[in-house]
Design a protein around this nucleic acid. Sequence first.
DNA 1: AAAATTTGCGTAATCACTTACGTAATTGTT
DNA 2: AACAATTACGTAAGTGATTACGCAAATTTT
Lengths: 160, 160
Amino acid sequence: MDLISELGPLAFGSRLKRLSETIMRGGEDVYRFYGVDFQPKWFPIFYFLSQKSEAGIMEIAEGLNVTHPAIIQMAKELEKKGLIISKKSDEDARKRNLKLSKKGKTLLPTLQKIWEEIKLMNAEIIENQEHNLLIAVKEIEDAWSEKSYLERFKEFHKLG
Amino acid sequence: MDLISELGPLAFGSRLKRLSETIMRGGEDVYRFYGVDFQPKWFPIFYFLSQKSEAGIMEIAEGLNVTHPAIIQMAKELEKKGLIISKKSDEDARKRNLKLSKKGKTLLPTLQKIWEEIKLMNAEIIENQEHNLLIAVKEIEDAWSEKSYLERFKEFHKLG
DNA sequence: AAAATTTGCGTAATCACTTACGTAATTGTT
DNA sequence: AACAATTACGTAAGTGATTACGCAAATTTT
């Protein structure tokens, strides 16, 4: 019995988190299946660099909508794996630019193939949904960003 | 620009996690607004105990679908706040049973009122959605639990 | 051109879990 | 009854992000 599934909107946070972790873990399996030494959490930054070719820490962080320490952390891992390299910017002494290494660029086509398959498969699951998760999440995100939870709550409370 | 929002199903994990954290953080505000010293993450276990009146660590962990160390952790916090108490089981010397303390029981009606309001408000947000997040998540959860991601992937790959 | 502000990055501490492992108590097997 | 297997719980360490803080370089203000 899973109590949480009966609580409706309450305790929804943990449920979303669990789902996201399930999805992540699924991704791991797929890379392993293809014998590729790559982690799902590296995807966003790696993909970003494959599009942008070169970018600073903050630029990536903003592009991916995560904090910059998170990028530094991932970048460390990817650099350790030799998939990206970093060098100080010439124009701005504060900046450190990241880009795909030779090894990273070599791996890219393989990864792209895998991503494409994952994308297709996920799309299949998602398109079979009556209520589309992606759209639903986007709607909630938008609703939330308009107004803080507390404001919303106070308003609701005043009316109720 | 938020790159993730353009990636479709890929990199969806972190996005869900972030949304869940936003929801959690919103919850904090609401308790604070009511001047109640309670954290959103305590809700599942507290609610569970309000229904079950007494339960062991494992029973709660399974009921809430989290690992037992997580329950131990939360229980420590709730016990520190004096909201629950624990005592060794008489029948089974390995077990430690948790239940609401007097203070916890006293707080319960207030919490229930708050929960009801949160629930109503969330329901309002959710009902205004064209694509219902709750239903969407349930659908995905169900789809996922049927078959592992990897199995699904292999099958997909075989057909594709 | 000096001073104040902002920006880019790095580190440390924290958070809310998880996995891994250990131990004692109970239950099941022969 | 002895042994093996399982169960309940506890602790420790790891994970993947966050906030908080600090510093140096660049930019803006006056």
